[in-house]
Amino acid sequence: MPSIVADYRASAGIDIEHDRADRTAGNQLQMPVTVLQQNWGAALGFDAAAIWRAWAPDLRHVTVNHGHFMAEEAPVETTKEIRALLIR
């Protein structure tokens, strides 16, 4: 459990510094990326595609109707998207 807490703590601290350094250096992900975004996040105005496109020029963004545990709530759709990503 401590490693989970440390991961959350890092995402609000040192990860931000590392992200800024990468962005300043112009670093981007060189592999294809797929983002599955919950529809309620999009409805609240959270634009996951815009955020991720800055990091991943080869981005596929999909809005889904299931919740946080996508693999459990919609295993068929989640598997389909993972397979499509692996083919890309």
Rank of each mutant, 00 (worst) to 15 (best):
Y8R: 09
A74Y: 00
A12C: 05
A71I: 12
D22C: 12
A21N: 07
A48S: 14
L44T: 06
V62P: 05
N27A: 14
R60V: 10
L86R: 08
A49Y: 00
D47L: 01
I16Y: 01
A84N: 07
P2S: 12
D58I: 10
V62E: 05
V64Q: 02
F69G: 13
I82E: 05
A21S: 11
P57W: 08
T34Q: 00
D19R: 12
A50N: 07
H66G: 04
A12K: 03
V64F: 06
A48R: 01
W40M: 12
A50D: 10
F69W: 15
T34S: 05
N65H: 06
A43T: 02
Q37E: 14
R60C: 06
A42H: 02
T63A: 02
D58C: 06
A49C: 00
L44A: 14
H18I: 13
A49S: 04
A84P: 01
L44E: 07
V64S: 01
E72A: 13
G26V: 03
H61R: 03
L59F: 02
G13E: 11
A71S: 12
L29A: 15
D58S: 13
R60W: 00
A12G: 07
L59S: 00
D7S: 09
R83Y: 09
T78S: 07
S3G: 02
H61T: 03
A84G: 06
E77V: 09
T79H: 10
T34E: 00
H18R: 15
A84R: 14
D58P: 04
L44G: 07
I4P: 00
I14M: 02
V33R: 03
K80Q: 14
R60F: 00
R53L: 10
E72K: 09
F46C: 04
G26H: 03
R83K: 14
N65R: 13
R88P: 03
D47C: 01
Q37L: 01
Q30K: 15
L44P: 01
T63F: 01
A74E: 14
D15F: 09
T79I: 06
Y8N: 10
E73F: 09
V62D: 02
R88K: 08
N27F: 10
P2C: 08
D19H: 10
M31K: 15
V33W: 04
E73H: 07
P57L: 07
R23C: 00
G41K: 03
L85C: 06
A43V: 00
Q30D: 15
L29D: 11
L36D: 09
D15Q: 11
A42C: 01
V76L: 06
L44H: 04
A54T: 07
V64I: 15
P32V: 08
A49V: 00
E72Q: 14
D58H: 13
A54I: 01
R20V: 13
V33A: 04
T34N: 02
L86D: 00
A84F: 05
S11F: 09
L85N: 03
F46G: 00
A71H: 13
G45E: 04
L85G: 07
I14N: 06
F69R: 14
H68M: 05
M31A: 15
W55N: 11
A21R: 13
Q38L: 09
Q28Y: 08
G67D: 02
F69V: 12
H68C: 04
V62Y: 02
D7C: 08
K80A: 15
A50G: 12
G41Y: 02
F46M: 04
A25Q: 09
L29V: 15
